[in-house]
């Protein structure tokens, strides 16, 4: 196994709620804490695409921002090329930051509306000395062409583009600083199916061309299955299963993964029977003790209510966090 490009080791991130800060000031009850990411370990090798799946609020974006270095962990360590990011000096930190770029769901709000496309794409490489003034135009043209955009449009503003084109601008901007890794957070979620397919194809092309390493966050299992080498499933702040994509989708081990897969509508499943999984998603402010999934799990045992199951290897390359794996 080659060395990880990035490794998150027992990383946690907690947030106090805004109300909590206020009530603390007023000397009331202690602030409610959200464990957005709770002791998560995950490593990604160079050239690997890891899909991160889970339902709304389970901590996917927070984990993505921790990996990108935009957020600092409350606990745990992030290793970049084998070195703890916390030990980085200013210069190393800056280059590590540039090394991971994020692409967001809503290209509209992540692109500065007052800048022309050429500036949006070319600014960071210019500031960081990747290109000099004379090479600027040619560089921007090349970045645009690579993302499937017509360079003659580079004097336009973001609002003059369609949603799919804006996502291409987002991709061009991220790739323009020549990052080692991308964190794509719901990057195709807001797009129509046919436009989504165009962006996924672009991503697959760029991946082969640039040997991209990527953390690909999505709530859409079909998309994740399509682009990922390995998949991690998250539930209320914890990774509950992690395995190569084909294993997760053909032999899911964790009851939550199994339920999720059973409920995903698929083109080939006609007149399905929906609704095998009961119950609401619990509030992240008050996650159930023990295994977070136990109130909804059809296999829950007494032990599940008190003891947190550890994520551990249950078959070569496949990890799962479920007490059922101890029984057998």
């Amino acid at each position: 196994m080659s060395e990880a490009l990035i490794e998150l080791r027992e990383v946690s991130r907690r947030f106090g709620t805004p109300n909590g800060a206020l009530s603390r000031l007023l000397g009331q009850r202690p602030a409610p804490i959200v464990h957005a990411v709770d002791h998560v370990s995950l490593s990604i090798r160079p050239g690997e695409v890891v899909g991160l799946v889970g339902e709304s609020g389970c901590g996917k974006s927070t984990l993505g921002r921790l990996a990108a270095g935009i957020l600092k962990p409350s606990d745990g360590q992030v290793f970049w090329r084998g070195r703890d990011r916390a030990d980085f000096q200013a210069a190393a930190l800056k280059s590590a930051r540039l090394g991971v770029q994020m692409i967001f769901q809503d290209p509209q709000s992540s692109l500065n509306p007052r800048l022309r496309v050429a500036e949006i794409i070319g600014e960071a490489p210019r500031v960081h000395g990747l290109i000099g003034p004379e090479g600027f135009d040619a560089y921007v043209d090349a970045q645009m062409r690579r993302a499937g955009l017509d360079p003659t449009l580079k004097r336009r503003y973001p609002h003059q583009f369609s949603g799919g084109q804006r996502q291409r601008i987002g991709i061009a901007r991220a790739l323009a600083v020549q990052p080692d890794m991308l964190v794509c957070d719901e990057s195709v979620a807001a797009l129509d199916v046919s436009i989504q397919a165009q962006i996924i194809n672009l991503f697959l092309d760029l991946r082969t061309e640039l040997n991209l390493t990527c953390l690909f966050i999505s709530h859409d299992l079909g998309v994740v299955e399509h682009v990922s080498d390995r998949v991690a499933i998250m539930y209320l702040g914890r990774i509950v299963e992690e395995a190569p994509a084909e294993v997760v989708f053909s032999h899911p081990n964790h009851p939550y993964t199994q339920a999720l897969l059973a409920e995903v509508p698929r083109l080939e499943n006609r007149r399905s029977h929906f609704g095998a999984i009961q119950g609401e998603l619990p509030s992240p402010l008050h996650p159930p003790p023990g295994c977070h999934f136990h109130p909804r799990c059809p296999h829950a045992m007494p032990r599940c209510k008190v003891e947190i199951p550890k994520l551990r290897e249950i078959a070569p390359g496949q990890k799962s966090a479920c007490h059922l794996n101890d029984v057998a």
Partner: peptide, 24 residues
């Protein structure tokens, strides 16, 4: 046909999706 080809699905993993050129 284009719409159906655009949907990522089980048997097409990692392969390019059929795509409809242009936009609405």
């Amino acid at each position: 046909a284009g719409l159906i080809g655009s949907v990522p699905s089980r048997n097409k993993r990692g392969a390019k999706l059929l795509q409809i050129p242009g936009m609405t």
